[in-house]
Amino acid sequence: MPKLSNHTEDKVPEIQSNDSCEFDFEDALGDVLNKRYDQERRAAELLSEQFDTSDLPEEEYNTLFTQMFDKVRAEDEAVDLQKKRSLRRIKTLRTQEEIKSAVDAGYKILKQKVIPSKEIRITEFRIRNIFTGKRNIVLYSFDALSLGTKWYEIVRKVTYYPYSFPSNVAAYLLPNDLQVGERVILEDLIEDIVGESHAWGTYRLDSAEAVWNGEKFEIDCNSYKVRITFG
Protein backbone atom coordinates (compact mmCIF):
# COMPACT_ATOMS: atom_id res chain seq x y z
CA MET A 1 0.00 0.00 0.00
CA PRO A 2 1.26 3.53 -0.68
CA LYS A 3 2.43 5.61 2.23
CA LEU A 4 1.63 9.23 2.89
CA SER A 5 4.82 11.10 2.21
CA ASN A 6 6.63 12.91 5.00
CA HIS A 7 6.69 16.21 3.14
CA THR A 8 9.25 18.71 4.36
CA GLU A 9 9.90 20.82 1.27
CA ASP A 10 7.76 23.21 -0.73
CA LYS A 11 8.71 21.62 -4.05
CA VAL A 12 5.80 19.86 -5.78
CA PRO A 13 6.82 16.72 -7.75
CA GLU A 14 6.12 16.61 -11.48
CA ILE A 15 2.75 15.00 -12.02
CA GLN A 16 0.65 13.84 -14.93
CA SER A 17 -3.05 13.36 -15.48
CA ASN A 18 -4.64 9.93 -15.32
CA ASP A 19 -7.53 9.70 -17.79
CA SER A 20 -9.12 6.75 -15.98
CA CYS A 21 -12.21 7.80 -14.00
CA GLU A 22 -11.42 11.50 -14.28
CA PHE A 23 -12.57 13.37 -11.19
CA ASP A 24 -15.26 16.03 -11.47
CA PHE A 25 -16.32 17.55 -8.14
CA GLU A 26 -19.83 18.51 -9.26
CA ASP A 27 -20.48 15.04 -10.70
CA ALA A 28 -19.10 13.36 -7.58
CA LEU A 29 -21.18 15.58 -5.31
CA GLY A 30 -24.24 14.90 -7.46
CA ASP A 31 -23.72 11.13 -7.10
CA VAL A 32 -23.45 11.43 -3.32
CA LEU A 33 -26.56 13.61 -3.06
CA ASN A 34 -28.59 11.44 -5.44
CA LYS A 35 -27.80 8.36 -3.39
CA ARG A 36 -28.75 10.22 -0.22
CA TYR A 37 -32.03 11.44 -1.75
CA ASP A 38 -32.87 7.93 -2.94
CA GLN A 39 -32.28 6.49 0.53
CA GLU A 40 -34.38 9.25 2.10
CA ARG A 41 -37.20 8.57 -0.36
CA ARG A 42 -37.18 4.86 0.43
CA ALA A 43 -37.06 5.59 4.16
CA ALA A 44 -40.09 7.89 3.84
CA GLU A 45 -41.98 5.21 1.90
CA LEU A 46 -41.25 2.59 4.55
CA LEU A 47 -42.37 4.98 7.25
CA SER A 48 -45.63 5.70 5.41
CA GLU A 49 -46.30 1.98 5.02
CA GLN A 50 -46.03 1.38 8.77
CA PHE A 51 -47.51 4.56 10.23
CA ASP A 52 -50.12 7.18 9.51
CA THR A 53 -47.54 9.94 9.22
CA SER A 54 -50.16 12.69 9.00
CA ASP A 55 -50.95 12.19 12.71
CA LEU A 56 -47.39 11.92 13.97
CA PRO A 57 -45.90 14.82 15.95
CA GLU A 58 -42.88 16.32 14.20
CA GLU A 59 -40.38 15.14 16.80
CA GLU A 60 -41.67 11.56 16.70
CA TYR A 61 -41.73 11.61 12.89
CA ASN A 62 -38.12 12.78 12.76
CA THR A 63 -37.04 10.06 15.19
CA LEU A 64 -38.81 7.32 13.23
CA PHE A 65 -37.54 8.69 9.92
CA THR A 66 -33.96 8.60 11.19
CA GLN A 67 -34.43 4.97 12.25
CA MET A 68 -35.83 4.05 8.83
CA PHE A 69 -33.05 5.91 7.04
CA ASP A 70 -30.39 4.09 9.07
CA LYS A 71 -32.09 0.79 8.22
CA VAL A 72 -32.12 1.55 4.48
CA ARG A 73 -28.48 2.64 4.51
CA ALA A 74 -27.42 -0.47 6.43
CA GLU A 75 -29.27 -2.69 3.94
CA ASP A 76 -27.54 -0.97 1.01
CA GLU A 77 -24.14 -1.43 2.65
CA ALA A 78 -24.89 -5.12 3.27
CA VAL A 79 -25.83 -5.63 -0.39
CA ASP A 80 -22.63 -3.90 -1.55
CA LEU A 81 -20.53 -5.98 0.85
CA GLN A 82 -22.13 -9.24 -0.28
CA LYS A 83 -21.51 -8.32 -3.91
CA LYS A 84 -17.84 -7.56 -3.29
CA ARG A 85 -17.35 -10.81 -1.37
CA SER A 86 -18.31 -12.75 -4.49
CA LEU A 87 -15.57 -11.12 -6.59
CA ARG A 88 -12.01 -12.35 -6.93
CA ARG A 89 -9.38 -10.03 -5.44
CA ILE A 90 -6.28 -9.09 -7.44
CA LYS A 91 -3.10 -8.35 -5.53
CA THR A 92 -0.59 -5.63 -6.41
CA LEU A 93 3.18 -5.98 -6.42
CA ARG A 94 4.79 -2.68 -5.43
CA THR A 95 8.52 -3.40 -5.42
CA GLN A 96 10.97 -4.59 -8.08
CA GLU A 97 11.85 -7.52 -5.82
CA GLU A 98 8.21 -8.64 -5.62
CA ILE A 99 7.80 -8.35 -9.38
CA LYS A 100 10.99 -10.30 -10.10
CA SER A 101 10.07 -13.04 -7.63
CA ALA A 102 6.63 -13.44 -9.22
CA VAL A 103 8.07 -13.65 -12.75
CA ASP A 104 10.76 -16.12 -11.66
CA ALA A 105 8.06 -18.27 -10.07
CA GLY A 106 6.13 -18.37 -13.35
CA TYR A 107 3.27 -16.06 -12.42
CA LYS A 108 1.61 -13.79 -14.97
CA ILE A 109 1.74 -10.10 -14.18
CA LEU A 110 0.53 -6.83 -15.67
CA LYS A 111 3.17 -4.13 -15.20
CA GLN A 112 2.18 -0.47 -15.16
CA LYS A 113 3.93 2.82 -14.53
CA VAL A 114 3.10 4.57 -11.28
CA ILE A 115 1.96 8.01 -12.45
CA PRO A 116 0.97 10.58 -9.79
CA SER A 117 -2.20 12.42 -10.77
CA LYS A 118 -2.39 16.20 -10.84
CA GLU A 119 -5.87 15.84 -9.32
CA ILE A 120 -4.49 14.40 -6.06
CA ARG A 121 -2.85 16.87 -3.71
CA ILE A 122 -3.35 18.39 -0.29
CA THR A 123 -2.77 21.88 1.08
CA GLU A 124 -1.24 22.71 4.46
CA PHE A 125 -0.59 25.86 6.43
CA ARG A 126 2.75 26.33 8.18
CA ILE A 127 1.85 28.43 11.22
CA ARG A 128 3.82 30.10 14.01
CA ASN A 129 2.74 31.08 17.50
CA ILE A 130 3.45 34.80 17.70
CA PHE A 131 4.29 34.67 21.41
CA THR A 132 6.27 31.42 21.75
CA GLY A 133 7.66 31.13 18.23
CA LYS A 134 6.55 27.49 18.13
CA ARG A 135 5.79 26.29 14.62
CA ASN A 136 3.20 23.76 13.53
CA ILE A 137 1.57 22.31 10.42
CA VAL A 138 -2.22 22.21 9.98
CA LEU A 139 -4.35 21.04 7.08
CA TYR A 140 -6.06 23.75 5.09
CA SER A 141 -9.70 24.21 6.11
CA PHE A 142 -12.18 26.99 6.69
CA ASP A 143 -11.37 26.76 10.40
CA ALA A 144 -7.65 26.98 9.68
CA LEU A 145 -8.17 30.26 7.86
CA SER A 146 -9.02 31.83 11.21
CA LEU A 147 -5.59 30.93 12.59
CA GLY A 148 -4.17 34.20 11.33
CA THR A 149 -5.24 35.93 14.53
CA LYS A 150 -3.50 37.62 17.44
CA TRP A 151 -2.17 34.18 18.51
CA TYR A 152 -0.89 32.70 15.25
CA GLU A 153 0.42 33.84 11.93
CA ILE A 154 0.35 31.82 8.72
CA VAL A 155 3.96 31.61 7.57
CA ARG A 156 3.44 29.63 4.39
CA LYS A 157 0.80 27.77 2.40
CA VAL A 158 2.06 24.54 0.80
CA THR A 159 0.35 22.28 -1.74
CA TYR A 160 1.85 18.91 -2.69
CA TYR A 161 1.25 15.29 -3.73
CA PRO A 162 0.87 13.38 -0.44
CA TYR A 163 2.03 9.85 -1.36
CA SER A 164 5.33 8.05 -1.84
CA PHE A 165 5.87 4.68 -3.51
CA PRO A 166 8.80 2.23 -3.37
CA SER A 167 9.06 2.10 -7.17
CA ASN A 168 7.85 3.95 -10.26
CA VAL A 169 6.61 0.62 -11.63
CA ALA A 170 4.06 -1.74 -10.07
CA ALA A 171 2.22 -4.83 -11.29
CA TYR A 172 -1.05 -6.65 -10.85
CA LEU A 173 -0.63 -10.37 -10.11
CA LEU A 174 -2.82 -12.23 -12.61
CA PRO A 175 -4.48 -15.56 -11.76
CA ASN A 176 -3.77 -18.23 -14.38
CA ASP A 177 -7.48 -18.83 -14.88
CA LEU A 178 -8.49 -15.16 -15.20
CA GLN A 179 -11.30 -14.98 -17.74
CA VAL A 180 -11.98 -12.24 -20.29
CA GLY A 181 -14.95 -10.26 -19.00
CA GLU A 182 -14.40 -11.34 -15.39
CA ARG A 183 -15.17 -8.69 -12.79
CA VAL A 184 -12.63 -8.45 -9.98
CA ILE A 185 -11.54 -6.17 -7.16
CA LEU A 186 -8.17 -4.48 -7.51
CA GLU A 187 -7.08 -4.45 -3.86
CA ASP A 188 -4.39 -1.80 -4.24
CA LEU A 189 -4.94 0.43 -7.25
CA ILE A 190 -1.88 1.33 -9.28
CA GLU A 191 -3.85 4.00 -11.09
CA ASP A 192 -4.25 7.31 -9.31
CA ILE A 193 -7.98 7.93 -8.95
CA VAL A 194 -9.58 10.41 -6.58
CA GLY A 195 -11.36 8.63 -3.74
CA GLU A 196 -11.82 11.46 -1.24
CA SER A 197 -12.32 15.20 -1.61
CA HIS A 198 -12.05 17.63 1.30
CA ALA A 199 -11.49 21.34 1.77
CA TRP A 200 -7.74 20.74 2.20
CA GLY A 201 -7.35 18.46 -0.81
CA THR A 202 -7.94 15.07 -2.37
CA TYR A 203 -6.76 11.53 -1.61
CA ARG A 204 -6.42 8.51 -3.88
CA LEU A 205 -8.86 5.62 -4.07
CA ASP A 206 -7.53 2.48 -2.38
CA SER A 207 -9.37 -0.16 -4.41
CA ALA A 208 -12.08 -0.53 -7.04
CA GLU A 209 -13.91 -3.04 -9.18
CA ALA A 210 -12.57 -3.69 -12.67
CA VAL A 211 -13.21 -5.97 -15.64
CA TRP A 212 -10.43 -7.91 -17.38
CA ASN A 213 -10.58 -7.38 -21.17
CA GLY A 214 -7.81 -9.82 -22.01
CA GLU A 215 -5.08 -7.18 -22.06
CA LYS A 216 -5.74 -4.89 -19.13
CA PHE A 217 -8.20 -4.09 -16.36
CA GLU A 218 -10.97 -1.64 -17.19
CA ILE A 219 -11.83 0.10 -13.95
CA ASP A 220 -15.55 0.46 -13.30
CA CYS A 221 -15.88 4.13 -12.42
CA ASN A 222 -19.39 3.49 -11.11
CA SER A 223 -18.24 0.87 -8.60
CA TYR A 224 -17.28 3.47 -6.00
CA LYS A 225 -18.38 6.85 -4.70
CA VAL A 226 -15.99 9.67 -3.91
CA ARG A 227 -16.13 10.57 -0.21
CA ILE A 228 -16.78 14.30 0.12
CA THR A 229 -16.70 16.56 3.16
CA PHE A 230 -16.91 20.30 3.60
CA GLY A 231 -15.23 22.64 6.04
Rank of each mutant, 00 (worst) to 15 (best):
S5C: 09
N6L: 05
N6C: 03
N6E: 12
H7K: 14
T8P: 04
D10S: 10
S17F: 02
S17D: 04
N18V: 15
D19Y: 15
C21I: 08
D27L: 15
D27M: 15
A28E: 11
D38R: 09
Q39H: 08
Q50R: 08
F51C: 09
D52Q: 07
D52Y: 12
E59Q: 11
E60K: 15
L64M: 08
A74R: 13
E75G: 09
L81V: 13
L81R: 13
K83R: 10
K83M: 08
R94I: 12
T95P: 01
T95E: 00
E97H: 03
S101W: 11
G106W: 10
L110R: 02
K111H: 02
V114F: 01
S117L: 01
R126N: 00
G133H: 05
K134E: 15
R135A: 10
A144Q: 07
S146Y: 06
L147K: 04
G148N: 14
E153M: 06
R156Y: 09
Y160R: 02
S164L: 06
P166E: 05
N168M: 07
V169N: 01
A170W: 09
A170L: 01
L173E: 00
L174M: 06
L174E: 03
N176D: 14
D177R: 11
Q179Y: 00
Q179F: 07
E182R: 11
V184L: 06
V184I: 02
I190D: 05
S197P: 10
H198F: 06
Y203D: 02
Y203I: 03
R204A: 07
D206N: 12
N213Q: 07
G214S: 00
E215L: 13
N222R: 13
N222W: 10
T229V: 03
F230P: 04
